[in-house]
Amino acid sequence: MEIAVLIKPVPEAETRLRARTDGTQLDAEGVKFVLAGYDESAIEQALLLREATPGSKVRALAFGPAPRTEEVLRAALALGVDEVTWVESPAEGADDPGVVARALAFALARVPHELLLGGKQAGDDEEGLVTAAIAESLGIADFGSVVNLRVDSASGSLTFQRATEEGVESWTAPLPCAIALQQAWNDPRTAKLPNILKSRKMPIAKIPWAEVSAALGEAARPRSVAERFELPPARTGAKMIEYKSPEEAAETIVRLLREEAKVFP
């Protein structure tokens, strides 16, 4: 099976974020970008499918600027992905999910992809649009929030489940198709040190933005532009109470909940 995994560099969870001075987007200066969450699960899934289906290949693609995109692709190589393709974005990045999807769809013409895998959404903006948009432009079926993905060796079809509010759906789907995976239902592996060292020396196929934008023409232009990027306001209103005994602390809290927060009548 030819598996293509879509990954995205996202800020490390512990990063302290701030807005750019023009207020339109995240200031990427000094931010550490990593392979995270849903994408790690998607790679793990791809590697498990490869192990279950001899002769399979796993290839990863990422769209974005240097150096962060190259770094997440190297992280994918260190985890055991066979080949990677870097689809370069404009230097400042491109947030419009349509542009991302069209650029990746363009790149997929060079990357075999019977099965297209992604996380159900990116770990940063959580939009969850790109995998579906690519599937649409490739004209293949797509499924979101998937768990328990297996390949049926007799038929070559995929079987999987989707957990919904109403219950669990069980599906069978023939290839080709696109699947956006729920996070962490598998336990993503950790790259081993020798593989990290090897990944530094492996090739990365690069498609320059000039080539992407020339091929896409008008479609390379974003249809949406972020106007403002604001961080949530700092939380205020925490009240520290002084007390001499637990009983006194409890009495004070109940009084404040009643009189100030008005949680109780």
Partner: peptide
């Protein structure tokens, strides 16, 4: 180097 950061990240995660 990016390689050194990757090695450090692995050790940090394990720790």
């Amino acid at each position: 180097t990016p390689e050194q950061e990757s090695l450090r990240d692995l050790a940090r995660k394990f720790a």
